[in-house]
Structure formats: structure tokens, C-alpha cells
Simulated scan of single mutants.
Amino acid sequence: MWHDLMAVQIPIAEKILRTIAVYALILILFRLAGKRGLAGLNTFDMVVVFLLSNVVQNAIIGNDNSLLGGAIGAVTLVAVNSGVTRWLARDPRAARFLEGSATTVVKDGKLVPGALRDLALRPSELEHAIRVQNGDNVSGVARARLEPDGQLLVTLKAAEQSATRGDVEELRQRLESIERLLTELAADRRR
């Protein structure tokens, strides 16, 4: 029994190469699928992720069901992912190539023609993201863009943005000034 758990049934180099090849394939597939695939996992996306993991399992492990073989595959996946992540953090050109660039979907309160269609993004998803980020509708958005990591970043028009603490403090000071002026005017009238 212990021998079956620890005896790697295919060469370790093959297991590492299989894992790297499958990682690269999935990376390419997600890159081709586009940012929309990362934006928010709906039911269909979850089904694909679960099935995808099952489909590529044998490509990674081969004819090896050992505990050590699985550990080698897991360590390889984590190491490769860590290496790629660090590489992308240091090399903007590699990040642009592998992840893509941001896509503007709303500009000056209007949808960018074809952007939603190209990203396979539904208007309801865009509207939801706008509401989550304190907007009311597309017309109140200065700019919205889908980032390579799938996040939708919304910048509201200045008139649509919530008041900040600085805004409230400025208003408080202005009100105090008005109150002082009114008090002075009332005092002048009494004289």
C-alpha cells in the first residue's frame, strides 16, 4: 500500500512537462476567451470550470495515481503560476500580451459601439456593475472599462459622484460663513 502511494508511475520530468503544457494550454484558452470569462462567473462559467478541470486531469497525471505524483503536479502548477505572475508584474509588455488591455465600454454617458458585443457582456451586467459602484445608469458614467482581470471599473461623472468627507467639510465651512454673515446682518439691522 505505501509503495503504491509513493511510487511515481511515470517519469517525474514527464509529469512536470505535462503540467506545464496543460497550464499553458488553459492560459491560452482563457486569453482567447477574453476578459468576459473572468468578469463574473455565472452558472454556465462554473460548469465549464468544473468540467475543464476534469477534462485536463488525465493530461496532467497520465497513468499515475500516486500521492507523490499528485503532489509533484500540484507543486509544479503552483510554481509555474507563481513564476508567471511575478514575470507579468515585472514586464508590462508580457502582461499586455498575455492578459490584454482594458476595453472602454462607456464613454461620456454613452455605450461604446460594439464593445459589449465584442466582450460578450450583457447590458444588465453593465448596469449592475454601475449600480454596485454607486451609479444610477449609463448616462451618469464618465467612463467604464473592463480590465484584463475581468473587473469593470466605473468612473462616475462629477455631478453623479457621492460627496466625500472633504466635500462635506467644505460645505460645513461655507454654511458657517453664511451663518456669520447672517448674524452680522441681523446685528446691523438692529442698530
Rank of each mutant, 00 (worst) to 15 (best):
W2L: 07
W2A: 00
W2T: 09
I10F: 01
I10K: 06
P11S: 04
P11A: 02
K15V: 10
I20N: 02
I20Q: 01
V22N: 01
Y23A: 03
L25V: 14
L25Y: 08
I26G: 06
I26V: 14
I26C: 09
I26H: 00
L27T: 10
I28W: 07
L29M: 08
A33E: 02
G34Q: 03
G34P: 14
G37F: 10
L38A: 12
N42Y: 01
T43Q: 06
T43D: 03
F44I: 06
V47L: 12
V48E: 00
V48W: 05
F50G: 04
L52M: 14
V55L: 14
V56Y: 08
V56P: 15
N58W: 08
I60Q: 08
G62P: 15
G62A: 07
L67Y: 12
G69T: 13
G69N: 11
I72C: 09
G73A: 13
A74C: 11
V75F: 09
V80Y: 03
V80R: 00
N81Q: 04
S82D: 01
S82P: 04
G83F: 09
V84H: 04
V84S: 03
T85Y: 04
R86S: 04
L88E: 05
L88K: 02
A89L: 11
D91C: 11
P92T: 13
R93I: 06
A94V: 06
A95N: 13
F97L: 11
L98R: 01
G100P: 15
S101M: 06
S101L: 04
A102S: 14
D108F: 01
D108C: 02
D108G: 12
P113E: 07
P113R: 00
G114H: 05
A115P: 12
L116D: 07
R117A: 05
L121C: 03
E125I: 03
E125M: 06
E127G: 01
H128I: 00
Q133N: 09
N134M: 07
N134D: 14
N134A: 08
G135R: 02
V141P: 15
V141Y: 04
A142T: 13
A142L: 11
R143W: 00
A144L: 05
R145H: 12
R145A: 06
L146E: 01
L146P: 13
P148Y: 02
L153Y: 05
L153E: 06
V154K: 10
V154H: 08
T155I: 10
T155Q: 09
A158C: 05
A158P: 15
E160G: 11
Q161L: 05
R165P: 15
R165E: 13
G166M: 09
G166R: 15
R172N: 12
L175R: 15
E179K: 12
R180E: 05
L181T: 13
L181N: 14
L182V: 06
E184K: 09
A187E: 08
R189D: 05
